[in-house]
Design a protein around this nucleic acid. Structure first.
Lengths: 165, 165
DNA sequence: GGAAGATATTTTAAGCTTAAAATAAATCCC
DNA sequence: GGGATTTATTTTAAGCTTAAAATATCTTCC
């Protein structure tokens, strides 16, 4: 196997590009997982809820007339069965309701209850503050550069992993 | 609530720093999750295995004399119970073995079987190629900048989320 | 109208994940 | 030595996640 090498600095031993990419992925994964874990802890401690429930509520919050189970599934990029379980638990907590669609008896229309809406507004505000605080050391320029690299990563993956889905 | 604004460009309406940080987090999370999902599909299609199993094997690969369950748990940053389950499945597949430690009967020493080691060497080589391919469009300089931002993010989180753990 | 196919959702089986409880064994200390 | 504490691991209960199978309903087309 030929090791292709990108020369970064003539005085320093060059790192093979494959190793460098691997290092990037491990960093990307571990940093993101770490933040995600702390966000889960925050949601648990502060609101006694979970990230999937928060995400479902966030999707619903912007839909004035509610969403069907299928729309939620597609929006959240999770399976149908997943939405069924998360929605059941939110319904049990009184934060959402499900009712059959009037025009299509296969569909369930999911909407926030008034209590759910009020709760989520508090969650969203504190969530945004928490995230903002986490990245407080980043300048606007750094954030823009960071976002640009993430966008490029996403595009690169789509381009190079055609079979991926 | 006072909205603090960082002026990026005098001609363009400035985006509140809180919103910009939120946007960064959503990008970071979605890009990473997308790559992770495709990596899981790759491991499933190519080796009929999972990311947790791959990670456990990777940890074991570098430990010449094996690792205890507790060492695996700490190294992988997962709970003890988690390691128990993943190790059971790998053992059933004949890739690892567990034997009681000679000096401490509470401990299990986990080692790769010869078949496990041979299998993992193939996994690791293709995994590295897959990752490298995914990031093929990135220059060495971009990768370095990306890694630097991820390191800074991790440090920033640790600094600003003291309660997080 | 009614069969065939498509669509929406739930159920099922398997695996990953955690926190907390339970077990078992080692260590500390009097 | 032996009780108290600590440490290593497994078990348990709950939740998240998926793919695939099962249900129920709708749409198409003759």
């Amino acid at each position: 196997m030929v090791q292709e090498v990108r020369v970064v600095d003539e005085k320093v031993a060059a790192v093979p590009a494959t190793k460098q990419a691997l290092r990037l992925w491990l960093r990307l994964f571990s940093s993101t997982t770490m933040i995600e874990q702390r966000l889960r802890n925050f949601l648990k401690d502060r609101f006694d809820t979970t990230l999937p429930r928060f995400d479902l509520m966030a999707a619903l919050y912007r839909a004035e007339d509610g969403l069907t189970m299928g729309e939620l599934s597609r929006w959240l990029l999770v399976s149908n069965g997943n939405v069924t379980g998360v929605a059941e638990r939110l319904e049990k907590e009184g934060l959402i309701t499900r009712r059959p669609a009037p025009n299509d008896r296969r569909s369930q229309i999911v909407t926030m209850t008034p209590a759910g809406r009020a709760a989520f507004e508090g969650w969203a505000r504190e969530h945004e503050e928490w995230i903002s605080n986490i990245f407080a050391d980043f300048s606007a320029k750094e954030i823009d550069a960071f976002v640009a690299l993430l966008v490029k990563a996403k595009e690169s993956v789509i381009k190079h992993d055609k079979k991926g889905k």
